[in-house]
Design a binder for these strands. Sequence first.
RNA 1: UGACCUAUGGUGUAAUGGUAACACAACUGAUUUUGGUUCAGUCAUUUAUGGUUCGAAUCCAUAUAGGUCAACCA
Length: 559
Amino acid sequence: MSDEKIKEEKSLNFLEEIIDEDIRCGKYKTIVTRFPPEPNGYLHLGHASSICLNFGLTKKYPGYTNLRFDDTNPEKEETEYVDSIKEDVRWLGFEWKHEHYASDYFDTLYEFAVKLINKELAYVDDSSSEDMAAGKGTPAEPGTNSPYRERTVAENLDLFTRMKNGEFPDGSRTLRAKIDMANSNMLMRDPVLYRIKHAHHHRTGDKWCIYPMYDMAHGQSDSIEEVTHSICTMEFVAHRELYDWLIEKLGIYPSRQYEFARRNINYTVTSKRKLLQLVTEKHVDGWDDPRMPTISGLRRRGYTAESIREFCERIGVAKRDNMVDVGLLEFCVREHLNRIALRRMVVFNPLKVVITNYPGEGEMLVSENNPEDPAAGTREIPFSNELFIESDDFMENPPKKYFRLAPGQMVRLKSAYIIRCEEVVKDAGGKVTEVRCTYVAESRSGNDTSGIQVKGTLHWVSARTAISAEIREYDRLFRTENPADEEGDFKEYINPASLNTITTAVAEPELAKAKFEERYQFLRKGYFCLDKDTSPSRLIFNRTVTLKDGWAKETKKKS
RNA sequence: UGACCUAUGGUGUAAUGGUAACACAACUGAUUUUGGUUCAGUCAUUUAUGGUUCGAAUCCAUAUAGGUCAACCA
């Protein structure tokens, strides 16, 4: 009941308000939205936002969402991208009603163009792109009419047909809308509608050598599909006038365009051009490098679809410029992973601990898989007199409030015993190579009768049964909040320490059974998942995100 | 020297003329066999100046700041 109340009270974003009103006043009974990527790159966090928005709207209101590929520029588009986009949208948890391609409408779009010519609203222009640019004027000064603007309908029809038939070379002619060269909106100054490109298209092959421009394809595709709410980012605001003009002049279904501000996220870049550069210039390991803000990169990194959806939900939608803190994304994934991740113990940088008074061969101890979820059950962990702990968890001369192991100090080994450090063994160089401890036999987890209270609990791995693993620790890809905005090349701001590979790690034997679809929390270390580079002889884990580290914060403050 | 868009805490969003709300971050403290989790608390007179009004974050005017637009890209 209270949930319902909260749901009802949650305020609507501006798009939901528009739709709410459209439905209330009877303008629409059901709505249609669409996610319209150009298949020229992999989907990233920015797209996730748009996907969640478009699909979210038709989850909330009656209607459906289409997936449409805006494939009107054959030179940049590839089937590989189409496939990855479909995979990513599905992985995010959404299913589209219809799968469309702007290229499916090339015939119809061509007819639309002919219609405009017949209505004297479009003409073939022989100007070079330089002359055309010069004729556009500037935002402050009107442009001048093209010398080809007054061609007759017959002449335009003939020329446009011949453009289609391949009689002219690339760039020699265009079809332009005849609107107003003095319009304060530059886009209304006789925009180009069609251009000649003798290029192979990933779907239509060599059938066409003229291709529609964005403005001649996008709104018309929306209209053909009877999209009611065509949602795009703010940089298209100026296009709306042309979008509406074309729909009106063509007399076709009146789709409406609405704009929202693109979500920017700090310490990363989300322009396809820049992401492509990172890949082709090998600054990263491919589109799915775990440091990339791509959906495939986040997936490989261990992010869950649920956490990405939650992130998009939390940042909301509005029309002002913004810079979202990547910390919120990290919060969302921690929140989810804390609920579902299986706890395991892995020591990254081992230091040997010998329990001098521990009798016998060893024993099996029991530990919970997830303290947040009793249903996750327990597992057995072997214990013996020779263990590894984290090198960072021992200090010979500890600072104040250091709750870990130090000479004479006691700690608990997680799910095992309390130990006390009795002796430090060093090599010739003075480096600590071994710590010798005694254990408190009555302090075993579950039936501790020792009465001893300790401040610190450490993760550990028994030496004899330990398995080795490689750990890949990822950090943010850039050193600055807004690399795209900095002086010079954005690549100068790449974080040189964005990947730290650890080859010395030892893990509890349970991890030999690690699965790709499983998520793990390595106790006191962070959240991890198995990487696709894992082989039968080598376990490789990616760090999705660290745990919050209060001690690190504390020590940083002091230094 | 134009047109258009935007302006609420460090960040992202609410408040639809009537008590500035939520989340993240940060900071206190408590709990804790993960320095995690959890819990309790602290953290803004809404870009500025006028105006309308009993009452303005909200409406109006002006200013200021940021952004977008002059691809045969999308």
